[in-house]
Amino acid sequence: MERRRRHLLDLASLPTGEIEHLLDLAESFTDISRRRIKKVPTLRGMTVVNLFMEASTRTRVSFELAAKRLSADTLNLSSSGSSTSKGETLLDTARNLGAMRPDIIVLRHRHSGAPHFLSRNLDAAIVNAGDGWHEHPTQGLLDCLTIRQHLKKIEGLRVAIIGDIAHSRVARSGITALSRLGAEVVVCGPPTMVPPGIETLGCTVTFDRDEAIADADVVMMLRIQKERLGEELFPSEREYARRYGLSRAVLERAARPDALVMHPGPVNRGVELDPDVADGPQSIILDQVANGLAVRMAVLYHCAGGEAAA
């Protein structure tokens, strides 16, 4: 039997069983960060390249630490420069990297589908660390893991995802994974930010925040990108915060007292999320960060193993 590279390009194409497997695997990896020596020798001799073509300190640091805790050699390549000098950038970078024979390439890229493109042009296993508006698979997994840890299950839970759904890879991965695991997902945002056919990913849509969070077990707030103001997606931050933001008052009025609040970070405090909610007792944002590390270790381990060629 021949070994084939195992990529993680998106959650949409991942069988539900593998999503569950990765979550279980991640659970097993959580203890490593609690040991005296926070490192296992598993990926010794392997090279993990963190290719970040879009600035993202958090995700890069999380992947880097994950690789290091598995004893892989890590290489960080960043180029936040707008890759408008079309063509050569990604393909050339890919070929140059390929010559160094990395085992895994973790790619963050501003264009949807870039990891798929890379997987066709390189021998390494490709891990998608966020591509355009498409997917952010490890974020989707860590969101599921965090919810599962707190509520002991995902099936049957009601999860509200609120914000700019259209331009959010976090939303797409989250909807996909949560709905596959049996959660009832409702997305909410102004119609300018809810893309057509999002229901096909496995969610319902409402434009009313209070309706979305009523009876929700989990309220997941998405980051508003302020640069989108110029696109007339919403009239002002003020109005957005009032209609679609989450404040203490809204949470107390419209949500269940035990509803959990999540956010992929970094938070625009006072826009989509008020500081007293972000830091409040219902927030599990920091657990998300901690779980990010375990999930990324699990994913690197999983991809390092390869799979039987069909």
Partner: peptide
């Protein structure tokens, strides 16, 4: 449409 939404394009 639905496909562009799924692909994030």
């Amino acid at each position: 449409g639905t496909v562009s939404t799924r692909l994030g394009l």
